[in-house]
Amino acid sequence: MSLLETNLPAVPAPSPTQFITLTVVAIVLAALSILWGFVDPRLIEGVPVWMKPLKFALSFALLFGTLALVETRLSAPAREGWTMQITGWVMAAAFLSEMAYMMYQAGRGEASHFNLSTPFTELMYTTVMAIGAVALVVGTAVVGWVAKRDQAAALSPALREAIWLGFLLTFVLTMIVAGYMSVGSTRFVGLHPEGAPTLPLVGWSGVTGDLRPAHFASLHAMQALPLLALWLGRAGEANGAVRTIRIAAFGYATLTFAIFAQALMGLPLIPLG
């Protein structure tokens, strides 16, 4: 019997909660980006113009899907309370505004990130998108805090701790890494010549420092630690599971900072040339 099945309140039946709705919207936007990509062959810096909206839509789908899984395990008072409702609306506004701008820029064949070419694009990137990004990671931490405090939630002690620490790490680490990225004019630390080798699928530089691997790690602490808690539950590791999660959280943060430091030294995550 797993940690999730021992002395836990019954899991409420899934319902169309706010985060489930946002997950569906993100999936629809990802599908639209794929379809438009088939009929719009334009490139930005050698990358299809609709790749950016596609990647972000998929990332949002994973974010909101994770939040939805937590939301459905909360008790009704916590799930329906003002804290969760306001957090959901704020995150929805940030998500929709960011996706709208990225898709608008893709339609124009222009970059949405690191684009300071006009007062409008500078305002959107440095202010609107920056505020939206902060709102999204703050909202993630708030959901983790609600799960931590909701003692009636259908969560084992280890999973509760993993959600709280994972969501908190996503907030803290993303603020550090993404905050550093936002003040620069490029994602690279050093020179990445056009046509230089990159890692398959993700496109990270194989020849110079790239801040995106650390950003990726910071964003996905919120999935990594809860997955570890679920694995511990399946393995029947009840004793010391909370302590294991705390040690793993420290290790995950250390690894993320190591990847970040490697990029700052101008070194690729995996050298390719």
Rank of each mutant, 00 (worst) to 15 (best):
K55A: 01
L136G: 01
M51K: 07
G109Y: 11
G107A: 03
A106C: 03
A92Q: 11
A111T: 04
Y125C: 08
S112Y: 01
Q85H: 13
A61G: 07
A133G: 13
H113P: 11
F60E: 01
T121C: 05
P48R: 05
Y125Q: 13
A61F: 14
V137E: 11
H113K: 03
F60R: 03
T87S: 05
G46N: 10
R108Q: 12
L67M: 15
G46C: 14
I86F: 03
A106H: 01
F64R: 05
A31Q: 10
M84V: 04
F114L: 12
P48F: 08
A93C: 09
A94L: 04
S97Q: 15
A31N: 08
A135S: 12
L96N: 08
F38M: 14
G46A: 11
A130V: 14
L136S: 04
R73S: 09
L116S: 09
W89P: 06
R73F: 07
L67R: 04
Y101P: 10
N115M: 07
T126F: 09
P48Y: 11
H113A: 05
T83V: 12
R79A: 10
W50H: 02
R108Y: 02
E80A: 05
R42I: 11
Y104T: 12
M84Y: 00
R42A: 10
T66Q: 14
A93D: 09
A111Q: 06
S97C: 10
T126M: 15
A111D: 06
P77V: 05
A94N: 05
V137M: 10
Y101K: 00
G37W: 04
S75H: 02
E110L: 06
M129V: 05
G132H: 02
M102W: 01
H113M: 08
F120W: 13
K52Q: 06
V70P: 05
V128N: 00
V90I: 14
L62E: 09
